[in-house]
Write a protein that binds this DNA or RNA. Structure first.
Lengths: 236, 236
DNA sequence: GTATCATTGATAGTAATACTATCACTAACA
DNA sequence: TGTTAGTGATAGTATTACTATCAATGATAC
């Protein structure tokens, strides 16, 4: 039996629910491939329309504009990731283990099999992960953050951070920066992954000599050290 | 006597050196005001030209395109910041104190007086700081990072991170993640400052009740704790 | 079976953007 | 006095980010 857990997306994110039609699903799935491929700035609704043999105007019936489509994809990813977190930490009691597991999930390691991937069929989560790393900050680093935030567009990200923060507090109840710690470890994970690939001199995970741990593994080690050193240190 | 230390910018960043003419300087200074005001996406060379009473084509004689102008501004900021770091840590011997000082500089606290501001006259560093927080990542989160990187466009940022990394190693010679620690603390400083202002629920620095430290002060405390807990923790 | 309704295809069009090209003018300089 | 660099002024192009309209289609309701 296959479990596919549908994500309920905020309906401010779209004009017509893309999961409600075949065309809508193609828009979402193929936009992920296209953006991962050529980047968000270079992606246009015309190129996307050509790719899925439809018309620009049809895409506009689902998404108000390009930016909303990006926000939709990112929001979907965070909801998917929160589900992964819930799923993989559910049976754990030790908060340290939970945090450790979450770090791996952030790097898309030890994924649940596709059977359990959230949302309907065939969303390429790896491609989406690439997009999140390179484009997610563009979702909120805009002149209209406040308005977008008022429409709850960033709620999935906030929810994930909130969940992570509460596990941090399980581990260390008197830690005074739980929310900042949560958001900063997530951002750091993505930034370092990006730097590792494109600006490796900004990291310590550059070359991968034979027999040694890969960049990804060392990044994970770094994040672990970063997170637990801050949570284990005395306050003040 | 006034010291103005000229920044020598990478000449790949511009077509004609904007510091070499009055118009060029107006372009740089007013673009800072305009971008800080309306955001990078909304800024156009036409609006900028109108603002300084020149023509679009004249701006294109200095900067190849909008993105290069952004990269130029960001690069200028990093060079300015590195100068601040050198200046303010020069007389210190204790690496811990140096690091502490650098965190303040990252938040633009305890600035050197305008007398010592690097570069020619009247660059509004506070406005530029706002731009760096909101737009700096757009300088490298592009599809053409690799090409831009090959042209050394990000050298100022790398230099700053390198300098910070070497001070980290002064403080803790066997710390294995000096470069990643350097880049991540800088990114975290900016992200948290942004979140604090626009998405405060992602931080712990939201409301500022009377008599308590301001958000900025608590952010600084957080960064201090984050940095030193990681550098003081045992490895493995 | 027919009305109607929602969805898409197809075409067209607009305002703005991101440039490029050209040429005349001016001030500096050689 | 001639040359040149820099700028102003105007014009123009390709593309983008949309909006509008209407016909074709296929499903559903009666």
């Amino acid at each position: 039996m296959e479990y596919t857990v549908q994500v309920r997306m905020n309906d401010k994110l779209f004009l017509r629910d893309p999961e409600s039609s075949e065309l809508g699903r193609r828009i979402v799935r193929q936009s992920i491939m296209l953006i991962a491929d050529i980047g968000f700035e270079e992606m246009t609704f015309r190129k996307l329309a050509d790719r899925i043999s439809t018309k620009e105007a049809s895409i506009y019936r689902y998404f108000e504009n390009k930016h909303r489509l990006l926000v939709y994809l990112i929001a979907w990813y965070w909801q998917w990731l929160e589900y992964q977190v819930i799923f993989h930490t559910n049976n754990l009691t030790d908060p340290r283990e939970k945090l450790d597991r979450i770090l791996k999930i952030l790097l898309l390691k030890n994924l649940s099999p596709p059977t359990f991937s959230l949302g309907a069929d065939n969303i390429d989560v790896s491609a989406l992960h690439i997009i999140v790393i390179r484009e997610a900050s563009k979702a909120y680093l805009t002149h209209h953050v406040t308005e977008d935030n008022r429409q709850q567009l960033f709620k999935p990200y906030k929810d994930l951070c909130g969940r992570l923060a509460s596990i941090i507090l399980e581990y260390r109840p008197d830690y005074p920066y739980a929310r900042s710690r949560a958001s900063s470890i997530i951002e750091t994970a993505h930034y370092q992954a990006y730097f590792m690939q494109y600006l490796p001199s900004l990291t310590d995970f550059g070359g991968q000599p034979e027999g040694l741990p890969t960049g990804e593994d060392r990044l994970l080690e770094f994040l672990r050290h970063l997170l637990f050193s801050s949570l284990d240190a005395p306050i003040q």
